[in-house]
Amino acid sequence: MPVISEPAEFNEEELYVDLRAALGLPLYLKCEGFNFAGSIKLKAAAEMVTAAERDGLLRPGSVLIESSSGNLGVALSVIAASRGHRFLCVTDARCNLPTIRLMEALGSHVHVIGEPDAHGGFLGARLAYVSALCAADERYVWLNQYTNAGNWRAHYRTTAPAIARRFPDLDVLFVGAGTTGTLMGCARWFWQWRRRVRVVAVDSVGSVSFGGVPGRRMIPGLGTSVPPPLLDESYVDEVVRVEEPDAIRVCRRLAGRGFLFGGSTGTVVSGADQWLARHSGRRHLTAVAIAPDLGERYLDTVYREGWPTDVAEPEAPPALAGLA
């Protein structure tokens, strides 16, 4: 085992689950949740913070600020705590309460947006709040995961080549689409180095990322209510859209076999299942899907019996004070 000094130095890169035994699905699931942030977002967080430090954007007295539905906020909390930065996460009412408490435990401050923007949804409201705060106080340094090239470069450098090393004969890769950092980093790498690999984006029904009709989404992480600036559809071969009940069913089926994954992972696996069912004649395909997170933070949502039909609107955790 490695000996580390900072939490970002550890990330399990080589763990895959063969889903043929658990789901009868010819799919290898790359598990990205085994690090101190519990999700794939640790890679992007480290890349973006390191670049901000290198470029002199972070100075004594600076405060990192970022909009996040949860996982990136936790990852930035881990990085900020380990490197001595202050951090304010702007999230919204769909964020799981355990995730908020985890960020607080790491020393971060959290501001919860309770009402969506009329046109941009919760994401639009979060972005407006961050923009206003940065305009009013020069201490705040916004990494802006939605436009920051470090978001996709992290996966171009690490995630994609790791998959290619393990599966040199890869035929199809399934990647969930949120900010599209993971998607764009992997798609760009495979386009450059393994052009025969088919990259399939998995999106949530209700997301507008690929021109879909906007709708209510309860599972945080994948999908957006504002078109993602990082997205370049020319690198994406296909898009599969997943209904949230299907994602929840997949999560619970996996849990029934001892694998507790997060809502984003359930969405990606459900999308891969749809695609593979349509291509069942190609029996010798090598297929990999990226699992962004684990399931402990979803015990009160995805894994609670009756959710989300027993919730009229996302419960709003108490808004916490920002940095004075």
Rank of each mutant, 00 (worst) to 15 (best):
A187W: 02
G70A: 10
W152Q: 01
Y146R: 02
T286K: 13
G70F: 04
L230T: 07
V242E: 03
V236S: 08
D18R: 12
T265L: 03
Y140D: 02
G322Y: 03
R20V: 08
R94W: 03
L27M: 10
R253F: 00
L183R: 02
S69P: 09
A125C: 07
C89G: 08
S77E: 09
A136Y: 00
I163L: 12
F122A: 11
P116Q: 11
L294F: 04
A160S: 12
G24D: 13
P292N: 07
F174M: 11
L42T: 00
S39E: 04
Y28Q: 13
P220K: 10
V226F: 03
A136N: 09
L323E: 12
I100P: 03
F190Y: 11
D18Q: 13
R139M: 09
V250S: 01
N151K: 08
G262W: 02
A45S: 13
R86S: 14
S280Y: 05
F10C: 05
N11E: 01
T158Y: 10
F36P: 05
P220Y: 06
Q192P: 00
V268Y: 02
A135V: 11
V78S: 04
T99V: 14
E32F: 05
V205W: 02
N11A: 13
D300R: 13
L222S: 09
D273P: 00
R257H: 13
I290W: 01
L23A: 10
D273R: 11
E238A: 15
P229C: 11
I79D: 03
Q145K: 11
M48S: 08
R86Q: 14
V311C: 14
A312P: 00
V311F: 08
L27E: 03
A272R: 06
E244Q: 14
R253C: 04
N151C: 11
P98S: 09
G271Y: 00
E14W: 08
H119V: 14
T180F: 06
E115M: 12
G295H: 03
V63F: 03
R196H: 15
R252V: 05
S68Q: 09
V311Q: 15
A312Y: 01
M1E: 00
L320I: 09
I113K: 07
A149K: 10
R166T: 15
G256W: 02
P245H: 12
G211V: 12
L72G: 04
G33S: 07
N148H: 14
A289Y: 02
F10V: 10
D300H: 13
L19A: 04
G262Y: 01
L173Y: 05
R196D: 13
V90N: 04
F87D: 03
G212D: 05
A160Y: 04
S69N: 06
H85E: 02
S67W: 01
R101H: 11
V226E: 02
R54W: 08
A135G: 15
A51W: 05
I290M: 09
Y140Q: 11
D117K: 13
L222H: 08
R194F: 00
A324L: 14
R101Q: 15
T224I: 00
L276S: 11
E32R: 08
V239C: 15
T91F: 07
